[in-house]
């Protein structure tokens, strides 16, 4: 570690030697665990070519089909995530601004809405949107795409708009109070203060948190596969593949890897944006909102 830790003093020669010995011992322990796991997998034939081949070997018959299913699933996941983030941004800004600008009576229903959807598990929200839409006979046909896509998108957007509204509020609250005061002093209306002074600055501070929220949304699109919503996103496609090929470990490994790579890249982007913004001399307090808790 280059940065000095609060936990340990700068190590001297003896501490460095101890750390090296510890590193080797831990490596041996991990190697042993990995050996046991690999042995177990090998004993059960989990490294067989007919289980991995359809994923990794272009000369197998199924290779093309597998990756075309994966491509369609990944596209479906990205479409759902993109629509959900766009919708949650719009709803979230309306909710957040409404909560900040309406009077103490006017904002009560908004606070109720926010607390309701923040407290509900997002999987429950999606199921409620899905079933209630059908039961109430609401027609989603005017919207492009299948209705199942919109059940997922609306459910995700209800949950995430509330989170974005709260991130926005935290962003505005972290601005120096002089910003709003100065804008009012030069005669701007409350709407102008919000639109031209507070929101643009808050958005800049919030950018990392918003990118992190995209990771949450991407992960949550896979909930469709658990509740049996017939939306064929990436995980559902993966399940189709392993039901045909009978290779759940290999297929779930590959699907999981794809999610991890995309989300890891997005998390790095969020960290990078955060660093860039804090170099620009922004208020570092906004960084606290960055790591979402799901």
């Amino acid at each position: 570690m280059s940065a000095q830790s609060v936990l340990y003093d700068v190590p001297g020669p003896r501490a460095r030697r101890r750390a090296r010995i510890g590193t080797i011992l831990a490596l041996l322990a991990f190697a042993f665990l990995a050996f046991v796991a690999i042995r177990r997998l090998a004993d059960q034939g989990q490294f067989d070519a007919d289980l991995w081949g359809p994923w990794l070997n272009p000369s197998t018959d199924e290779f093309g089909q597998v990756w075309s299913l994966v491509g369609r699933g990944a596209l479906a996941t990205l479409i759902a995530a993109a629509l959900a983030i766009a919708l949650s941004m719009v709803l979230g800004v309306l909710l957040g601004v409404g909560r900040m600008m309406l009077g103490s009576v006017g904002r009560v229903p908004l606070i109720g809405f926010i607390e309701l959807f923040r407290g509900l598990p997002v999987v429950i929200t999606i199921v409620i949107v899905w079933r209630a839409t059908i039961e109430l006979g609401i027609n989603l046909d005017p919207l492009p795409g299948e209705p199942v896509l919109w059940y997922l998108v609306i459910g995700l957007a209800l949950y995430n708009s509330v989170i974005i509204a709260e991130i926005l509020r935290a962003g505005v609250a972290s601005l120096p109070s002089g910003q709003g005061e100065a804008a009012r002093a030069v005669g701007m209306t409350e709407g102008q203060v919000m639109r031209t002074v507070l929101l643009p600055q808050a958005f800049r501070i919030m950018l990392p948190a918003l990118i992190s929220q995209l990771v949450v949304i991407l992960k949550d699109t896979s909930l469709a596969a658990v509740i049996g919503l017939g939306y064929l996103e990436l995980l559902r496609r993966g399940a189709q593949i392993y039901q045909i090929l009978d290779n759940p470990i290999q297929s779930l490994f590959m699907i999981g890897l794809m999610f991890i790579l995309i989300n890891y890249a997005l998390s790095r982007l969020a960290t990078y944006t955060e660093k860039r913004l804090s170099q620009a001399g922004d208020d570092p307090t906004a960084a606290e909102a960055v790591v979402p808790a799901t």
């Binding site: 991407l218 909930l223 658990v226 995980l235 779930l252 989300n263």
Partner: peptide
């Protein structure tokens, strides 16, 4: 575990 969906 932070980047893999709980569902997977």
């Amino acid at each position: 575990f932070r980047n893999c969906p709980l569902t997977i």
